[in-house]
C-alpha cells in the first residue's frame, strides 16, 4: 500500500538505503551486517530518547530536558552503586524519578498553559544542575551485573553482534509503534498535535494525555541513561550534552512534522540510522574531520524541513 501519507517515511528509509549503499560501494567492509548492527549498538540510547521525543513532537510539543535527564540518570546510578546498591533497584529508582520528572513538566505545561520549550528548558537546566551538584566528577561504574549485561548478546553471522542495548532499543521501538498506532492513547497524541481545540471538543482528555506524553519522554530518557551507562561504564554530569538536539534532528529527519500531528515512530529509527551511517561513513573515510557529520546532518535537516513545508502546503 503506497499511501501518500507515508511519503516522508519512504523518503527517509530510501535515503538511509542509498547512504548505506554508497558507503558499501566506496569502502570495503562497509556493506556488512557488522557495520549495520554497530549502528544500533552505538546509537541505542539515541534511538530510545528519540522515540520518546517523537511522541512529544507528535503531540505538538518539544522536550529539551532529555539530554540532561540521561546525565542525571547516569549520575544517580553511579552514586547508588557506590553506596553499595544493586543496579536493578537503582534502575527502578531512576525510571520512577524520570517518569515523575516528566509528569511534573507536562502538568506545568498543561495547567499553566506555558510553552513546552520554556518549561523543558527549565527542566534541562534543573536536571543538569542537579547532576553536577550530586557529583561534579565522573563516577566510574564497576559491578559484576554491568559486565554481565554489557557482555550479553548474540553472535550473528559475519562477526556482527546483537547486544543487550540493541535488544532494549528494538523492544522499545516495537512497543512504541504499538502505542502510537494501535492504542487509543496514540490516537489522542496525534489528535493533540493536529488541533488541540478540536481534540478537546471530540472528548480527548487533554490534561491526561499531555502529562502522559512528557512522562513517557522522560521515562525513555531515563532508560536511555541506563543504556548509556552500559556504554560508558560511568555516570557523568556533563554526559550527553546536546543529545536533545540530536534526538529532535532524528525525529525531523525521520519525517515527523515539527508542528505536530504527522509522523511515525519507525521514521525516527531511520532518522537515527541516517545520522549514524553518516558518522560511520566519515570514520571509514578517515581523512575527513568528524565535524563533517554535523555539517551533513545540518544539511539533511534543512532539506527535510523544506520538504515538510512543501508537503504541508500541498
Amino acid at each position: 500500500m503506497l499511501h501518500k501519507k507515508f511519503l516522508p517515511l519512504y523518503v527517509t528509509s530510501l535515503l538511509f538505503a542509498l547512504l548505506f549503499l554508497a558507503g558499501s560501494i566506496q569502502f570495503e567492509n562497509f556493506g556488512t551486517l557488522r557495520v549495520f548492527m554497530n549502528l544500533f549498538t552505538d546509537n541505542a540510547f539515541l534511538i530510545i530518547v528519540a522515540i520518546g521525543m517523537t511522541f512529544v513532537i507528535l503531540s505538538g510539543g518539544i522536550d529539551l530536558s532529555v539530554g540532561s535527564t540521561i546525565a542525571l540518570s547516569g549520575v544517580i546510578i553511579g552514586v547508588l552503586l557506590e553506596a553499595g546498591w544493586h543496579p536493578l533497584p537503582a534502575f527502578a529508582v531512576v525510571l520512577v524519578l524520570g517518569t515523575l520528572f516528566g509528569a511534573v513538566m507536562g502538568a506545568i505545561i498543561h495547567y499553566y498553559q506555558l510553552q513546552p520549550f520554556i518549561v523543558t528548558l527549565a527542566g534541562m537546566f534543573f536536571a543538569r544542575g542537579l547532576s553536577s551538584v550530586i557529583s561534579e566528577e565522573s563516577i566510574p561504574i564497576m559491578h559484576e551485573f554491568y559486565d554481565d549485561v554489557a557482555m550479553f548478546g548474540f553472535e550473528l553471522p559475519g562477526g556482527a553482534w546483537l547486544g543487550s542495548s540493541t535488544i532494549i532499543a528494538l523492544t522499545v521501538l516495537v512497543l512504541a509503534v504499538m502505542l502510537a498506532n494501535f492504542t487509543r492513547f496514540g490516537g489522542r497524541v496525534y489528535g493533540l498535535g493536529g488541533d488541540t481545540h478540536s481534540a478537546a471538543l471530540m472528548g480527548v482528555p487533554i490534561a491526561r494525555t499531555t502529562i502522559a506524553v512528557y512522562a513517557l519522554s522522560s521515562f525513555l530518557a531515563a532508560l536511555a541513561g541506563i543504556v548509556f551507562s552500559f556504554y560508558t561504564f560511568s555516570g557523568y554530569s556533563l554526559a550527553a550534552v546536546g543529545v536533545e538536539l540530536d534526538a529532535i534532528a532524528a525525529v525531523v529527519i525521520g519525517g515527523t512534522l515539527l508542528t505536530g500531528g504527522y509522523g511515525y515512530v519507525v521514521g525516527t529509527l531511520f532518522g537515527v540510522l541516517i545520522m549514524g551511517v553518516v558518522q560511520t561513513y566519515i570514520s571509514f573515510d578517515g581523512t575527513l574531520s568528524s565535524w563533517w557529520t554535523k555539517i551533513v546532518i545540518g544539511l539533511l535537516l534543512f532539506i527535510f524541513i523544506a520538504m515538510q513545508r512543501f508537503l504541508v502546503r500541498r
Binding site: Y190, G194, D195
Partner: peptide, 11 residues
C-alpha cells in the same frame, strides 16, 4: 471541529 491530520475513519 475534527482532526485534519487523522484519517476519516479515525475521526
Amino acid at each position: 471541529n475534527l482532526l485534519p491530520n487523522l484519517s476519516v475513519a479515525q475521526n
